[in-house]
Amino acid sequence: MTTAAPVAAPPAPRRGSPAGRSQRRRTALVAYLFALPFVASFAVFMAFPLISSLAMSFTDFRSTDIPSPFSVNVVGFDQFAALFADEQFRRSMLNTAYFVLVGIPLTMIVALALAVALNNGITRFRTAFRVGFYTPVVTSIVAVAVVWRFLLQPDGLINTVLGSVGITGPDWLGDPAWSMPSMIMLAVWRNTGTLMVIFLAGLQGVSAEVLEAAEVDGAGAWRRFLHVTLPMLRPTLLLGAILLSVGFLQFFEEPFVMTKGGPLDSTLSISYFTFNQFGFGNYGTASAASYVLFVAIALLSMFQFRVLRSKD
């Protein structure tokens, strides 16, 4: 903690001068000190687990091996071969893809519609609407999943409302064809607020002059939206897509509470598959499955970073 002592810094440390050099060295020392908690945390909770997870994914590590982690057998790529041959894991990949590919565009469309309506369509009660639409975001997924489980019962509130307009609602959580749409419905409900706020901020950046010029030129509201607002919103839309995709790819709480991955594995996600393997004590399989998810997330993020950067 020598750096904590007040030092009389030379009035103007010139580059290259001994005083300047020692000043810079001192600054670097302080910087490392400040970065230490993050670096330590990164090493212990990020780098180490990432590496050992990769190592474990090539072994037959089981929960019984915890006392002697180095006595496990190396099975190499057979682990991944077995994983990809596993019907259930393949199903979980398809389910995750379904959730991501349908859920993200749907959330984005709803959020964008709400943001545009709040930004251009109305003048009063903006804050009240914004707070209302954002409320689901702050709630625990576990708690809202419990509530939605009841709403989605065959004779629950949602089907009662549908019935009052003459629609016979499905057995949302009990029918393999409807269980995933139910998960997606919950996800859209819970995540729209996040994106709406981001899109609202983005819409403030859309130049009012350009919009007015387009209006003077006779462009209608829809064409203005399509040809002025949307292109100018591109970076914000991509940011929203990245944020959602990392979260959506990991989805776990919703099926855990609502369906336990069923019926017939129709809501089993990769995260859930990993958690189950962990629960069975198959740590090697769990690690391998989680790495598949990690690679998917990393590839997707890198791809999106690239798209974002090229538009700077």
């Binding site: 990432l50 915890i66 990991q250 769990a286 690690s287 989680s290 990393a298």
Partner: peptide
Amino acid sequence: LMVPGVVTFVPLFVVVSR
């Protein structure tokens, strides 16, 4: 930012339990 909790929890649990 990119590492999901689901990737790290298995080895972390091994460490924590040891």
